[in-house]
Design a protein around this nucleic acid. Sequence first.
DNA 1: ATCCTCCCCTAC
DNA 2: TAAGGTAGGGGAGGAT
Length: 248
Amino acid sequence: RPSDATCGVGNSNSNGKASLPIRREKDFVDTFFSNSRLHFIGSWKANIDGVMSAALALNKSPQPLPATECKVRQIIHVDIDCFFASVATIVNPTLEGKPVAVCHSDHSNGTAEISSANYEARKFGIKAGMFMSKAKELCPQLVRVPYYFEKYQEISRALYRILLRFSAQVQPISVDEAFVDVSGLGDSMAICQEVRACFAKETGITVSAGASHNMLLARIATKRAKPNGAFLVPSDAAEAFIGELPVG
DNA sequence: ATCCTCCCCTAC
DNA sequence: TAAGGTAGGGGAGGAT
Ligand SMILES: Nc1ccn([C@H]2C[C@H](O)[C@@H](COP(=O)(O)OP(=O)(O)OP(=O)(O)O)O2)c(=O)n1
Ligand SMILES: [Mg+2]
């Protein structure tokens, strides 16, 4: 906080240089937020509303059947595969097939957190939130890549533009994840595959999809579909599907 | 009974 | 060399 900055180290004497620590404090806060992946994700949620209303204003998105007018809804959930890590592979295709993790630091000690790990890296037990130092213990040949926040924004917009071509009822969950109500708009698995194909063609990145008759089942179906797949839970299979889910 | 605020937790 | 922010669900409990 600027009001605290004059209490900082090296500013104890009254030589008229009190403004310097205040300015450096402000720069610190700005760089912190501009490099924070969690700030990027969190503020995007509010940002999505603008993207949505702009696209919906074009009035080109088909309206699904209201829940009251169809016996069984058709809900789709989509989630980009290891989003940030996938973007790095688009930027540098030679990373294909190698274990990759997104992180500010590549050091073997310290507490820098991994934001996203690709599926090669996950075979070693590496996952989001893990310290890079721990990840390199598990996988010394792990390739560390930087953040590309501008590209995440661009690719996220592409996903939402595609989803809104199939239905006007899109609920954003995050930068890489959304629900879509496609009740009465066609075969839900066919729509899943169309969305996946469109997105892969436009961005070169894979997105997985789950489909079922409610949001919860669709979301869990996406976990089963990953990576680079689609999975349907039919109404009469829901009980068995839920019943066999492992703990953890 | 309802509404509100605070707090804890979780998913991104 | 590191950038642990943000929104929302839901329970506890006080005010109305
Ligand atoms: N603890 C976390 C979780 C997520 N993210 C960021 C990086 C992810 O790429 C993005 C999307 O989150 P997901 O939970 O969808 O994870 P991924 O897309 O990376 O992998 P998955 O294939 O499991 O969806 O959010 C992050 O920075 N820190
Ligand atoms: Mg994802």
